[in-house]
């Protein structure tokens, strides 16, 4: 299960990320991707330093979106790259200790990422999402299946993912699912993660 931060659409996104980090102590391990494009690097770094130890002590994995420099400096375990990031091999060389994930939008770019040494992929949007902004038009389960078949690294499905849709994603080859909108209320994060888990066949 991957939890993606609110992306600045939420007025209190700074506070929300902190609350989400705290809630992970109760949810069991997840992958947390901090994706806050609206924050300047200084504020992002301060936030990362604040939440990295909390997230790690819950057993969760902390990924910073794109800025691998901030991931390195704040003690995050990895960096999640957009499809249009700087070349993966240059990042792997500069930050060999980081887990690297990447967003992809089709089988061709999925294969390219895998060959470049990416550890996991995020594919979407599978379904239509209320916040269309991050991921473009929906691609459907068929496209998800195709991407999952084309690579051997884990693929997380994203975009309009709700607990009852998680199962279909896994059946179509996804290793896990990622969601943003379901976690805007940090108070219910642990129970929402559990609902997701109950729909994911193990």
């Amino acid at each position: 299960m991957m939890v993606v931060s609110s992306g600045g659409e939420h007025l209190l996104h700074n506070g929300l990320a902190l609350l989400q980090a705290d809630a992970m102590a109760l949810s069991g391990p997840v992958i947390y991707q901090l994706r806050e494009k609206g924050l300047e690097a200084g504020a992002l770094y301060a936030l990362c330093r604040q939440i990295a130890p909390i997230i790690k002590s819950s057993g969760s994995l902390f990924m910073v979106n794109e800025r691998f420099d901030i991931a390195l400096a704040s003690g995050a375990q990895g960096v999640h790259l957009p499809e249009s990031s700087c070349p993966v091999d240059s990042i792997r060389k500069a930050a060999p200790g980081l887990i690297t994930g990447q967003s992809v939008h089709g089988p061709a770019s999925a294969l390219t990422s895998e060959k470049a040494g990416i550890d996991y992929l995020l594919f979407g949007p599978v379904f239509s999402t209320p916040s269309k902004e991050p991921f473009g038009p929906p691609q459907g389960l068929e496209a998800l299946r195709e991407v999952c078949r084309s690579v051997s690294i884990p693929v997380f499905a994203v975009g309009g993912i709700t607990p009852d849709r998680a199962c279909a994603c896994i059946e179509n080859g996804a290793y896990g699912v990622a969601a943003l909108g379901s976690f805007l209320d940090a108070g219910t994060l642990p129970e929402t993660v559990n609902r997701f888990r109950s729909f994911i066949p193990s």
Binding site: E66, R67, F68, D69, C86, I91
Partner: peptide
């Protein structure tokens, strides 16, 4: 400017 990640990568 600003992007230490880019500076490190290249």
């Amino acid at each position: 400017n600003d992007r230490l990640d880019i500076a490190l990568a290249m």
